[in-house]
Design a protein around this nucleic acid. Sequence first.
DNA 1: GGTAGGCTGGATAACGTTCTACAACAAGAC
DNA 2: GTCTTGTTGTAGAACGTTATCCAGCCTACC
Lengths: 351, 351
Amino acid sequence: MNPTLTSPPRRVTIVDVARHAGVSVASASKVLRDAYGVSEEMKERVRASMATLNYRPNAAARGLRGKTFTLGVSVPDIDNEFVSALVEGILSVTEPTEYEVLIGPAGNASSSQAKVIDAMVDRQMDGLILFSPYGSADRIAEIAGSTPTVVVSRHGASRVYDTVVGDDMLGARLAVQHLIDQGHERIAYVTHSDGDQTDPHSPQRVRERGYREAMSLLGLEARIDVVPSTWSRTGGTQAARTLLARDELPTAVFAGADVAAFGMMNVFGEHGTRLPADVSLVGYDNTSVAQLRPVSLTSVDQDASSLGEHAAQLLLERIDGRSEARHVVITPRLEVRATTGEPRRTDGAAD
Amino acid sequence: MNPTLTSPPRRVTIVDVARHAGVSVASASKVLRDAYGVSEEMKERVRASMATLNYRPNAAARGLRGKTFTLGVSVPDIDNEFVSALVEGILSVTEPTEYEVLIGPAGNASSSQAKVIDAMVDRQMDGLILFSPYGSADRIAEIAGSTPTVVVSRHGASRVYDTVVGDDMLGARLAVQHLIDQGHERIAYVTHSDGDQTDPHSPQRVRERGYREAMSLLGLEARIDVVPSTWSRTGGTQAARTLLARDELPTAVFAGADVAAFGMMNVFGEHGTRLPADVSLVGYDNTSVAQLRPVSLTSVDQDASSLGEHAAQLLLERIDGRSEARHVVITPRLEVRATTGEPRRTDGAAD
DNA sequence: GGTAGGCTGGATAACGTTCTACAACAAGAC
DNA sequence: GTCTTGTTGTAGAACGTTATCCAGCCTACC
């Protein structure tokens, strides 16, 4: 069948298209790019040749001179419901465009994150969406200097890149307020202490500030109780074990992320600690697992999908040439479910 | 600071490295690639220059002649726990290598899948891992002809690409056998009917065959009951509604995927249908959500992470030059949890 | 009827790498 | 001393595209 039996048929290039249409390569390139200076008639002819030859431009070659039409999304772990929703939002915006989205699994170490981001830059991607990146703001700014960049879920505005964040201060306040409204006073906050501890712009730190502020505002500063852990299922199990090892369990726990809350649920379940009878639990992100009926976790919703849409929108604008920075803040909302209720009356005043 | 104030500093290229080290570009390229014909002394000198100049090769340019050191993983939806585990397995193998993994969100339509796969080929990726692809076997073979390819979770061996699959026949049999052992007879199977209906190699079809065979083998062919739906949370809710609308609920449901089972759990919960008292439920994939204590779904485990490891391993071998195809089958295992139990005695013989 | 200007189309030099072919040289064999 | 052989380094042509310039040609205007 194939004239040269051994090797696979060579890919059709723009040269083949040009020859087939009887025009120069330059002209073929022009119609491919919709550039100025080609007659309607020629456009049609070249387009027809592209179709019959089944031509697809080589993105690698394109990248060398022009654009790659590729957007990179770096995420710490894809094993995160929040990330799925975010990506879905991004895709809904990019789908009608000619851009392709590729996701880089960046891991939770700042070194592996840097590696993935570098890899995306090295592949000449046209734009980057970084989800909750660990690197220093300077490093991000440096990258943004050469490649349009939008940062998601990391506070701290910049002049050189755009940001899209949920209002984590408010989200934390909503969670704490809800618990206090129900009569809780001993409310613990489970934080994420991986990555860059000192970065005041990480969601975990901002949520912590929201928690502290809400507690203080309601006269509970003495009860402030921050449990260091990580926002993962295993982090949650560890945090729960830490709490259970104490003399007295707090009456409520605000886990900074749903995943951590899930880990805690497992441990509480094993120990016969009931939710919300023995302890109330609030998560963050309102992932689809939290919405599962057997789980029914009270959680702060920050509309990941809309975060993603905004991010993609901003990125496309950046690529189109916008140079002043924009910063979008999404307002979170508390979704009350079955894991929160009134505290058990422990001290004095029996039933 | 910057000599040319406006534009960002030009990237350092191999030409800069060569000049800095006082050698030719060709030689610099040789040490970069660890190619034959360079003295130790020169290697060191060039490596030093690369380090001081902070040189990173341009992957797009590399792709034009050599390799891009990029592996593409196409997945229908990343909002799938199984996929997360798969990717994790892949990364554990590729991490020590110089290859970078990028994930393409391919969606559930066969058109969008094709688009993503094309995009990866166009970007000159060195190898492809396709998870549960929809396209025809011919189309996949065509791609595999030009780019090393490993197909995951799609049965049907090929001479031109490798495959890694769970033994879905066996998995289905394990699930059905378990239910029958507990005394069930009216066991429904919820299948996925998106995509290519006629493809006998899709997991849904193979699991269906396993289900039918197990039922028949135990004399229950009259009870065979295949519920068409989709393997997603909403698919599950629809399937559950369909079942509830019948005169009589089956005593057990084998959902072909955990996600579908989750959707069903929600609906059953709303309707006061208890698990397993009123109906037993078995999933497939043993996702981490199934393992969550409040969920505790009985499920077939096919060790996604090991699937991923095998796939990555095979792909690296392919890239290294292996040309005969290899096909790996992973043996699944049933994980019994709280959603399965003896059927309620409905007919005759009261307590 | 000359010429300025607007359209079309094409030549051609990049872009940053790889890799083949070859040059230069040294060392050993006769 | 010449010839072979082996080692180390380099020139330079790809790879597939983009984008800048320039050459025709046609029209319209003086």
